[in-house]
Design a protein around this nucleic acid. Sequence first.
DNA 1: CTCCAGGACAAGC
DNA 2: GCTTGTCATGGA
Length: 217
Amino acid sequence: MKITVIDVYQRLYNAFGPQAWWPANNNYEMLIGAILTQNTNWQNVEKALANLKHPITPAKILSLSQEDLASLIRPSGYHNQKAQRILQFTHWFMQYDGDIEQIKQINGVQLRAILLSLKGIGPETADCMLVYAFDKPFFIIDTYTGRLFERIGFAVAKQYAAFQLQIELALGQAFSLTICNEFHALIIRQGKDYCKATPSCQNCPLNQLCHYYQYRQ
DNA sequence: CTCCAGGACAAGC
DNA sequence: GCTTGTCATGGA
């Protein structure tokens, strides 16, 4: 039997329910979190965010030197790079007075191109920002996403853009901001619980679809 | 001790 | 155009 992309979504949603993402106290904190979590465990990001202390605002971040910011976000790893990137992103953000509503006026595809032009924001980080802060629908690809679809037998495109288009086309009519929002969060939830580098398929909602599970039976 | 986590980028071929 | 090295911390 051929499983569809929307079936995968439904199975995850039925198993885990709504994930209420992104975990952040405000939009700006979400955007900073997207940079902090690059190739980094979310637990370490939380330590970095805790060091910055609530409320995390553009003004507070811009009041810090790059060195001081770097030392505060040290637990998130790559702290020197990320400090520089967070500062330059914040300068961009303040070109719109730090006003999310103002930025949301920009066309989604155009806004994505602007984000990608900033150093340190690649396709995944841009798409997370677009979905979880700017309300623009894009299917987000990450390491868990590739792993999941490979393991359940999809011929996954290797390039980010091709993979993304593949899933968005497969979703067809179902493609929406809500689906993009929940799907990414659900995929990571499933990944953290079951589908890491060494998978534990036993109670996974996708277990019978997964190569690893099938080989073990 | 080794491996890896909610990537991006530049250099080298 | 694709592959590889670099950036770095903390937890399992």
